[in-house]
Amino acid sequence: MALSTSALAPHAATDAHAHARRGISNPILGMILFIASEVMFFAGLFAAYFNVRFTAAHWPPLVNEAPFEPFQIRNEMVLAAILTAVLVLSSVTMQMAVWAIRRGDRTAFLRNTGVTLVLGLAFLTGQVYDYLHLGFGITDTAFGSTFYTLTGFHGAHVLGGTIMLSVVLYRGLAGQFSARHHDAVEATSLYWHFVDVVWIVLFSSLYLL
């Protein structure tokens, strides 16, 4: 036993040296590069929306040369505002989960991750409810197309985020994270904050601008 310990010592020292020289972990590096590519993905969608919107003679477009009432989504933005609050709150709880695991508080980490997951699912449920009551479809002029494309792709990203959160929660329950080893939590939180920021820009563009 003593022999094996002394044999491992040089390797341990080498690993510690390599760790000290490492600038950023691979999961976080990969996630930030992925987010950079996602910025361009959503930029394309927003650019298309702005291009259509600011070159249109009327916005929202007229239907049969008359204003189409369901397009007046600004007048019914209560649900969207609630969904915005839900998503912003979920970012807060996600960050609280990160802070908790950084200081080794696994109970608070699991609680906050669970709340974040529930808030994410609540957002998705609210979005589905909104879709069912909007009164226009994706084929109803450029307004419908851009609205559903933007919110739909964002919703898909929220769904992806909830899947990541589910995995993080499962691994957390299995005791796989600690104050030293929680890169997956950090990476997931970065993605979740990004999805939140995209929604704020989306909400501002569609409902407030």
């Binding site: 950023i24 976080i28 950079a36 361009m40 930029a43 927003f46 650019a47 291009n51």
Partner: peptide, 30 residues
């Protein structure tokens, strides 16, 4: 506005990529 959106987002994306690639490389001072 569409072009401005794309160029602005490109700036953000390049900043993110440059930041993480520079931070991710081994520290030069060692």
């Amino acid at each position: 506005v569409g072009g401005v959106t794309m160029l602005g987002a490109l700036g953000i994306a390049i900043s993110l990529a440059a930041l993480v690639l520079a931070a991710g490389s081994p520290r030069g001072d060692e």
